[in-house]
Design a protein around this nucleic acid. Structure first.
Lengths: 249, 249
DNA sequence: GCAAATGCTGTAATTTGAACACTAAGACCC
DNA sequence: GGGTCTTAGTGTTCAAATTACAGCATTTGC
């Protein structure tokens, strides 16, 4: 193949929707663009893929350059390739999402220079972002909502030790719903994916909660046996919502 | 951006896993390669994406050039971009799957020249395919298995009029399992997604079955109200399987 | 010691899912 | 026309999962 061919005048990039969870809120890491195009707008971290680099490798690289983190959860979601999505040429981009523990996170020197910030996901979905990044964020957020119902990836967003209430708040933030406390705890504990650490929370101005950790070994065991993980919205609400919509027609 | 940049010496293609259903079997449309590399091996239909062409457009084009069909179900699944996946250069490929009614299908003139055939999916997964197409087929088949449990896309594979038994066989072929006849019919009918056509099968040497069609309008209504479609494997089997595995440990 | 805040726990009612076997209708053959 | 073959079609019972729901317990801080 030769470089003169028209088919070889395109580039591809990866864009990474990096989710974090803090203070009861689901967040996404964005970079303020310092140069045209879209100067001054917030954008997803991303980069062109090197000629001799695999796609996943590129996505991990973007993540590590920005956060210093390796070994985080990363998943390819969708590829966006509208002809006019990049004003300077044909660039298709492969979108990934990753889940990081904000507790582990420190900005790297390289990222420190840039204007990097955690943003509330829902707010970002309502604001303007560079390129087609709003669509990408939407798609990845939907993928996350879907994923947490099927696999226990939520733990990737929590610190190593967490309380059941924190876990519940995480699920509520991702699924944008409220869950019944007793049913949630019953269900989660019945899966035996949590190890009770026999430790209590410290520094809280109320009764401290027990701390748990995620039991990865147990998860892999169950996974091998066709286990499925699921958290559902309350039926009461679904019914109410559906009824309301029917009436509205 | 200029053409000398190293980043612009790559190409991208689409590959299309075209599923059909015939004679109780799930099939995939493959092309026998007439030229190197991988000459003589079966491959997925695909093509480079034109410089001014959107990705989905390219996937539809590949499909139409081969089958003459427009307006078929098409879904992007995953992008494959290993550095060495194409022996002649860096080509990343965006994989799609599509669902066609074999009854509608006729080979186009252009595809007639090529060696195009329907292959049993399970056989193909065990045979050698060109490039990384076996991995792509696997990924798309898994995506299909997953998709039919969530959305009623299975109908895209059946002729406009079909019997409940045909529908059941389709699900059994995709999910590689057996389903209980009564429970299946009960569930499917309870969703009110089928319209009873008040017609009977003809030309069968036994009691003819009623014919149904898929009610698309009804589906869109339900979809708008957060409806979810699901077909499950029998629990009996799962339990047996799991027990066997536990014993084997 | 009392107020404030969150942690923690169980049961009853309902819904959903799974298992299971016989009669019905038409085609074909004699 | 009667018998046989083949697939169509149908309901009930039991078990499991899901839902709704409220009050006492423990710690901190005043």
């Amino acid at each position: 193949m030769n470089g003169d061919n028209n088919f070889f005048k395109s580039a591809f990039s990866v864009d990474n929707v990096i989710f974090g969870f803090d203070d009861g809120d689901l967040k996404v890491l964005l970079i303020k663009r310092g140069a045209a195009p879209f100067q001054g707008l917030w954008a997803l971290p991303g980069d062109l893929v090197y000629p001799n680099e695999d796609l996943d490798t590129a996505a991990y690289r973007v993540l590590e350059e920005l956060t210093g983190l390796k070994k985080v959860y990363l998943e390819q979601v969708h590829t966006f390739g509208a002809v006019d999505r990049h004003p300077l040429g044909r660039v298709i981009t492969i979108a990934y999402f990753s889940l990081v523990k904000i507790s582990d996170f420190t900005l790297t020197a390289s990222s420190f220079a840039q204007n990097v910030e955690w943003h509330n996901v829902h707010d970002s979905l309502l604001s303007e972002l560079a390129f087609d990044h709003k669509t990408i964020l939407e798609t990845c957020f939907n993928a996350l909502m879907h994923r947490v119902r099927i696999r226990p990836v939520g733990f990737e967003l929590l610190p190593p030790k967490f309380t059941l209430t924190e876990l519940q708040h995480l699920y509520e933030a991702i699924l944008s719903t409220e869950l019944d406390k007793r049913n949630f705890r019953k269900k989660v504990l019945s899966m035996s994916l949590l190890t009770d650490l026999d430790e209590l929370q410290e520094g809280v101005p109320h009764r401290p909660a027990k701390l748990y950790k995620f039991n990865k070994e147990r998860y892999h065991q169950l996974e091998a046996h066709g286990f499925s993980f699921e958290v559902k919205e309350s039926k009461k609400k679904e019914k109410k919502k559906r009824l309301a919509e029917l009436i509205a027609q």
